[in-house]
Simulated assay, not measured.
Amino acid sequence: MTSNGYFDNGGTVVALAHRGFSLDGLENSMAAFRAAVDLGFRYVETDVHGTKDGKAVALHDASLDRTTDGHGDVADLNWAEVKGAKIGGVEPVPLLEDLLGTWPTLRVNIDVKGTSGIAATADAIERTRAHDRVCLASFSTVRREATVALLSKPVATSAGTREAAAFFAGGFIGANMAAPLVAVGAVQVPVKLGAVRILTARHIAAAHAAGKQVHVWTINDKAEMERLIAMGVDGIVSDRADVLKEVLVAIGRWE
Rank of each mutant, 00 (worst) to 15 (best):
A186T: 07
A186C: 10
A186W: 01
A186R: 01
A186E: 05
A186L: 07
V187P: 02
V187M: 01
V187F: 00
Q188K: 09
Q188F: 09
V189R: 01
P190R: 09
P190G: 07
P190W: 07
K192E: 13
K192F: 15
L193E: 13
G194R: 04
A195Q: 13
A195P: 13
A195K: 13
A195I: 14
A195C: 10
V196A: 15
V196E: 12
V196C: 12
V196L: 15
R197H: 11
R197S: 14
R197Q: 15
I198S: 06
I198Y: 01
I198V: 15
L199N: 03
L199F: 04
L199E: 06
L199T: 03
T200V: 13
A201Y: 08
A201G: 14
A201T: 14
R202C: 11
H203G: 05
H203E: 02
H203L: 08
I204H: 03
I204W: 00
I204S: 05
A205S: 12
A205W: 06
A206E: 08
A206C: 06
A207Q: 00
A207N: 04
A207H: 00
A207K: 00
H208A: 01
H208L: 01
H208G: 01
H208M: 01
A209Q: 12
A210P: 00
A210E: 02
A210T: 00
A210M: 03
A210W: 01
G211A: 04
G211H: 04
G211E: 06
G211W: 04
K212N: 01
K212V: 07
Q213E: 13
Q213A: 13
V214R: 02
H215C: 09
V216K: 01
V216H: 01
W217P: 08
W217N: 11
T218H: 11
T218L: 13
T218V: 14
I219D: 07
I219F: 05
N220L: 09
N220S: 14
D221T: 11
D221H: 11
D221W: 06
K222Y: 05
K222A: 14
K222E: 13
A223L: 13
E224T: 13
E224M: 12
M225L: 02
M225F: 05
E226Q: 11
E226N: 09
R227C: 10
R227W: 11
R227L: 14
L228N: 04
L228T: 06
I229E: 02
A230V: 09
A230I: 11
A230C: 09
M231C: 10
M231Q: 11
G232V: 04
G232Q: 05
G232R: 03
V233N: 07
V233K: 00
V233E: 08
V233H: 02
